[in-house]
Simulated scan of single mutants.
Amino acid sequence: MASWDIFCSVVDNYGDIGVTWRLARQLAAEHGHHVRLWVDEPAAFVALCPQADARLKRQQVAGVEVCHWAADWQSEALADVVIEAFGCTLPEAQVAAMRAAARQPLWLNLEYLSAEDWVVGCHGLPSPQGQGLQKYFFFPGFVAGTGGVLRERELLARRRAFQADPAARRVFLAGLGITVQDQARLISLFAYENPGLGEWLDALAVDPQVTQLLVPRGRILGDLRQWLGEAGDLEPGFMAQRGNLQLQVLPFVSQDDYDRLLWCCDFNAVRGEDSFVRAQWAGRPLLWHIYPQEEGAHWEKLDAFLALYLQGLSPAAAQALHELWRAWNAGAGMGAAWVAARPHWPEWREHAEKWCAEQASRPDLAAALEQFYQESL
């Protein structure tokens, strides 16, 4: 059994901790490692894992030792592998101990997921850190030559079994207070603030098909409240009807329940990295709100993914999907883009399953990290 330390500095509330928590659990459960997950904001972790206690400095949760990464952090026994997640800066005491160790640990900088071409050339490259210490860049990705994406061993089997069981779906949704209307299309919405939301909601309200929009608590609720003309906060359980659109606000749920919500829906609007990956494993059409970056750097990342994801679609379907994603991320034009997208729905649904199967044919991120570690011995 090897020991792994994963350091996570919480950014944007849940994105970074969401990825590292899934990774830590998988390394422990499927690869048998002792994993310590160091988190600087325990409250954010508890939102994803309600059975945890934010007051504890360290605790065992789902086979992982979860520790508070406080400002006065002190070096402990070195792990065999140290993961610096998403460019967070390790404690100086940790780096000093690693340099002084007779047998230095494998130090990995786990980068953000990207489909850009340059990722393949940078994946696995070393960066000398002095006194013989090396840090290696580890890039998740969607093509050979990258680190893959997170996927638990039985994830797709569990997803397919759940989707094939209407009773399980009804029971799960009922537990969230959701009653599915006859012939209704279910859409989940988890996004950053977006001025284009109103146009989309207007289009859904007059769409010939009834839509139930399920909105977990998050940053998009302010825009939703503005469109509705509501004065107060939208609390879990809030519902509203506008034409053929029914909206319902959901509580912030655990990661496993969020997976099931994605599996239940016909279309998933997601944000960032963690929910983006989980929506792909749901095998359903999706809409990605990429994290906005300075000087529009995120557009290159969005287009790089679309260049891969659109392969295999008919030209008309690919163009419609491309315009929908661009409109959502630009915050304008969603009404027209949604109307143009409707005829391509069956093709998108089939394509989502094909993409899922294609990605599942490659090693997942935890397996790729394990292989990299084994090759370093």
Rank of each mutant, 00 (worst) to 15 (best):
121 G>A: 09
168 A>F: 03
108 L>M: 10
97 A>W: 03
94 Q>L: 08
90 L>Y: 09
140 P>Q: 07
82 V>K: 10
108 L>H: 06
98 M>Y: 09
164 A>M: 02
108 L>R: 09
175 G>M: 14
130 G>L: 04
141 G>L: 00
181 Q>D: 13
156 L>D: 03
129 Q>G: 01
157 A>Y: 05
107 W>H: 05
99 R>L: 09
178 I>C: 14
171 V>K: 05
105 P>L: 10
147 G>K: 03
167 A>H: 05
138 F>E: 05
97 A>H: 11
180 V>P: 13
179 T>V: 11
124 G>W: 03
135 K>Q: 02
169 R>K: 14
148 G>K: 00
111 E>G: 13
123 H>I: 03
113 L>I: 15
142 F>K: 02
132 G>H: 04
179 T>S: 07
114 S>R: 10
171 V>S: 06
95 V>E: 10
165 D>H: 04
167 A>I: 07
137 F>K: 01
142 F>N: 01
172 F>L: 09
154 E>T: 15
115 A>G: 06
166 P>L: 02
97 A>N: 14
89 T>V: 12
108 L>E: 07
175 G>D: 12
93 A>R: 14
145 G>S: 02
147 G>A: 12
105 P>I: 12
143 V>T: 14
115 A>Q: 06
161 A>V: 02
98 M>L: 11
180 V>T: 15
104 Q>Y: 08
106 L>H: 08
174 A>Y: 04
178 I>Q: 12
170 R>K: 10
88 C>M: 14
158 R>S: 14
107 W>F: 05
95 V>D: 05
134 Q>S: 06
107 W>Y: 06
135 K>W: 06
166 P>G: 00
169 R>F: 01
116 E>C: 04
108 L>S: 08
123 H>G: 01
105 P>M: 10
99 R>A: 10
105 P>H: 08
127 S>P: 00
102 A>C: 14
132 G>Q: 03
153 R>E: 13
181 Q>K: 12
84 E>Q: 14
124 G>V: 06
168 A>M: 03
176 L>E: 15
140 P>H: 04
169 R>Y: 00
99 R>N: 09
170 R>I: 07
133 L>A: 02
160 R>D: 11
108 L>G: 06
163 Q>M: 07
113 L>E: 13
171 V>P: 00
114 S>M: 11
155 L>C: 00
106 L>C: 05
